[in-house]
Structures are given as C-alpha cells and as structure tokens.
Design a protein around this nucleic acid. Structure first.
Ligand SMILES: NC(=O)c1ccc[n+]([C@@H]2O[C@H](COP(=O)([O-])OP(=O)(O)OC[C@H]3O[C@@H](n4cnc5c(N)ncnc54)[C@H](O)[C@@H]3O)[C@@H](O)[C@H]2O)c1
Ligand SMILES: NC(=O)c1ccc[n+]([C@@H]2O[C@H](COP(=O)([O-])OP(=O)(O)OC[C@H]3O[C@@H](n4cnc5c(N)ncnc54)[C@H](O)[C@@H]3O)[C@@H](O)[C@H]2O)c1
Lengths: 208, 208
DNA sequence: TCTAAACTGTTATTGAAGTAACAAGTAAAA
DNA sequence: TTTTACTTGTTACTTCAATAACAGTTTAGA
C-alpha cells in the first residue's frame, strides 16, 4: 500500500475510536455521512480516506463496522504493540503516564526516564523510572519504538539524539525547544505557540 | 493587515521566543538564515513570514531584533493580556496550570473550573477553582477570552457550548471527543491520534 | 418490470502551505 | 572608485490537503 497522508492517518485513529463505540451497541453497518457527522467533517472526506486504505463498502448499506475497525488496525497498528517511553517524569510526564495507562490502545508504555534521584527506581502504574544514563541500554533491551519528551527544554535536543541513536523511531516533543533529528519521525507540539495562535484568531477583526 | 496563515502565526510565536533570548545576550541584528537555522526551517520561509507581517530588514545587515519582537507583539498580542481559563482541574489541568504560571507570556490564567467539591474553592498558584455552575458568571465577569478543556470527554461538547455562549472566543480541546462549535476558534489536540500517527510513520517501510 | 432515490468510489478542481527563483540594492573589499 | 559577494523582498511554482462533481450500482417502490 502507498504511504498515507498524515491527516488521513490521524482521521483513521478517530474513525476507529467512534466506530468501536458503535460496535459496542451492536450497530453493524454505517454510512459515510453518519461517520462524517460524528467527526464534524464531510462525507466525501470519509469516503476518500477509506478509498485510500482500500476499503469497500456495500452500496446502499454502507460500511461494515467490524471489518473497517479491523482493517484500520492492520494499517496503523503493529502486530506487537508499539513500545513507548516518557523522558522527563515531571508534572506533564505524570499526566501522560496516567493517560496512557488508563486508556486502552495499541501503545504500551514501557519505561520512564528522569535525572532526579528521588524518582529513579520508583515504580508508577507498573512502569519503572530509570536514570537517563541508561537510555541506550533500556531502549535497546525493550526495543522501544517511540518516546515522549517532557523534560526541561534545554536537554531536549541532546536527549533526542541519544534516543534516536539507541533505536527510537518516533518522537513527540512537548518541550518548547525546536528540534532537528535524522532517522526518526518527529512531531512537535508547542503549547505556547498553539495558545498564541488561538489567541490571535480570537481577535474580533476576523470572527469566522 | 490581512489575516495571516495559521502556520505563520505559530512561527511568529517561535520567532519571538528565540529572538528574545538573543536580545538578552545583546545581539542587535539577525539574518534570515540565522533565524532559520535556529528553528530548522528555510531562510525563505522566514523572509516570507516577515514579509506577510510587513517587516522590513536592512539589506546586508538583517533584521533589527528589538523592532521585530515588538512588531510580532503588536500582531499576536492584545493590549491587555489574553485571559485564559482551564476547565477540568485534574492531572492534565494541573500540569497546564503549572506551565502557564511559570512561563511568562502574554496569557493570563484567570480561573479554573471543576465539579469536584474538594477542588472547588481552592486556590492554586493564585488561581481560584470555581464550580462549573459558575461558568457564565465568571467568564463574563473577568472577560475570559480562551479556555482549555481538560475534563472528561463526555462533558466536553456541552461545556464548550456554555463557554462560547458566555463569551469565550477560543477553545483548545485536549479531550478525545471531537467538538463542533460556532462563533469561536477551535483547536483540537488529540494525543492518541498524534501518537498513532507517529507510530504509523515509524514503520520501517517508509523510513524518511 | 421500470423508475427514482440513495450511496459509494473516483477523478477533477480548488485552496493552503511551502519552496524555488530571481531582481534589486548595499556593504565591504579590491 | 569599482567590483564582488551577500542578503532582502517578491513573484512564480510545487506539493499536499480538502472539496466538488459525477459516474456507477443497488435497492425500494411505483
Ligand atoms: N506542564 C505542562 O503542561 C507543559 C505543557 C507543555 C509543555 N511543557 C514542557 O514539558 C516539559 C516538562 O514540563 P513539566 O511541567 O512536567 O516540568 P517539571 O519540572 O514538572 O518536570 C520536568 C522533569 O524532567 C526531569 N529532568 C530534568 N532534567 C532532565 C534530563 N536531562 N533528562 C530527563 N529528565 C530530566 C526533572 O527531574 C523533572 O522530573 C517542559 O519542557 C515544559 O516546557 C509542559
Ligand atoms: N492526562 C493526560 O496526559 C491527557 C492527555 C491528553 C488528553 N487528556 C484528556 O484530558 C482530560 C483530562 O485528563 P486528566 O488526566 O487530567 O483526567 P483527570 O481525571 O485527572 O481530571 C479530570 C478532571 O475533570 C473534573 N471534571 C469531571 N467532570 C467535570 C465537568 N463536567 N466539568 C468540569 N470538570 C469536570 C474532574 O473532577 C477532574 O478533576 C481527559 O479528557 C483526557 O482524555 C489527558
């Protein structure tokens, strides 16, 4: 299969989430316009995404929910779960730990890393916090695929480099420092920029 | 001035952040390629953004840092600071409170909202937590511009509606439920979708 | 049996964002 | 003083994403 557009992949994640809920209440088929309504997008967008992943619906009956969920799974999941680490076990790191352990998903949180001696060695929601010195060792041992950076910004680049060298293939950077990495997929989420953007668009001049 | 592209606004926030640091060490002028290098983007992108906001540099000397920072301010800031509320004062809400109060910015966190009686009435980093019942009253009284949604997903849409009716003009939704609102700018940040996207792109087939 | 309405699947068009190309002008060096 | 190298500012082009248009198929109902 061709490589999918980023936005499509994000929507596949959304589709799966809402479809799973519908499956629970024993709905069997769904129309593109029903999916669209749930996500506040257009039916065309839905059909196009499904076309891209090669899913065919039944004319006048719509898409078979169970089948669609399972197809999305084969595309965005791994046979084994993706292994994830959180680097920087502070306030935000805690929140993410909590979120990842209580929400069932195809992601498996395997390790935490920090520099604070009081945190190193502790077990939190069954996940051990290691010293950052052990990043190469632990990443390799558990074959960790992805890392979430929630450490102070000034250490982000250096740590990202170490992570990638140790085999990490995807990074989400929540710090405010802007990174550059080679050999791995990088996603930045800069909360301040996001807030300032929203602030800009709240200006009365361009109410939408 | 014309309405700016969303991405440009985000980058303006980045420009300002790095430029402020340079100003502190008494750098006076900067070239587009220097800015570009700091943010890992292209010099053309920088010049184009600055063109859009109508800033002129000096040929062969670059941009006057102080001037540029102040221009960015007039564009993305408010004369008074933007007033922000956090709705849902749980783990993530706490992290955000912490982040917003310790990072100096043009945003002023004014109120927290929750339903938990143990949290209502408490003061945290000088910010009071109110009952969600008082959303209309408090939003209007303090003229709150923006809200961050960090409450359980099933309440997000209803609460968003209330917020907008009370006068909020921008919302960042951190819950996993997908919202639709009219009359305000909405930004969704769905962490699971973001993680699943990164996971997808870590697949060995398309190393970049 | 025939017709019309309702959906799907795909191609074509539009729009937004980023990149490239280059003209114009200035400072520094020769 | 003249030349050269460098940097800005702007227009043109490319790429990616979303939307529109429509052909094709099935089912229900006349
Ligand atoms: N709190 C938020 O809501 C929020 C939001 C967006 C971005 N951020 C960013 O996320 C990062 C963490 O924020 P926070 O509020 O959790 O801060 P925090 O101070 O609570 O946590 C930082 C943690 O990182 C650890 N640490 C320090 N140096 C380290 C290193 N070299 N390697 C690994 N760990 C190290 C610290 O011991 C601490 O546990 C910051 O960069 C912040 O800008 C935070
Ligand atoms: N923790 C994370 O890192 C994280 C990441 C992404 C998204 N999220 C999402 O953010 C939201 C909050 O996550 P959390 O980990 O902080 O959960 P949490 O349970 O710690 O916090 C939720 C808070 O919302 C309050 N609340 C309940 N009903 C409310 C209502 N009707 N109005 C206002 N407040 C109400 C609760 O009392 C609690 O304080 C969830 O939707 C979660 O999916 C969390």
């Amino acid at each position: 299969m061709e490589i999918l557009p980023e936005r499509t992949v994000e929507r596949l994640s959304h589709y799966r989430r809402v479809l799973s809920k519908l499956l629970e209440i024993n709905k069997e088929y769904i129309y593109s316009h029903e999916i669209a309504k749930l996500l506040h997008i257009t039916p065309v967008q839905v059909r196009r995404d499904l076309m891209l992943i090669g899913h065919s619906g039944t004319l006048r009956k719509g898409y078979r929910i169970r089948e669609l969920i399972s197809l999305i799974g084969t595309i965005i999941d791994n046979p084994e779960k993706y292994k994830v680490a959180i680097v920087g076990f502070g306030k935000l790191g805690h929140a993410l730990l909590n979120y990842l352990t209580e929400n069932e998903s195809n992601l498996h949180l395997v390790a935490l890393f920090d520099t604070n001696p009081e945190k190193i060695g502790t077990t939190n929601n069954n996940v051990i916090c290691y010293s950052v010195d052990r990043i190469p060792e632990i990443i390799k041992r558990y074959k960790i695929d992805m890392a979430l950076l929630t450490l102070p910004p000034q250490f982000a680049q250096l740590t990202a480099n170490q992570l990638v060298e140790s085999g990490v293939k995807g990074i989400i950077n929540y710090t405010s420092s802007i990174l550059s990495i080679e050999g791995a997929f990088l996603e930045q989420y800069d909360m301040i920029a996001s807030l300032e953007k929203v602030a800009y668009f709240t200006k009365p001049e361009f109410y939408l």
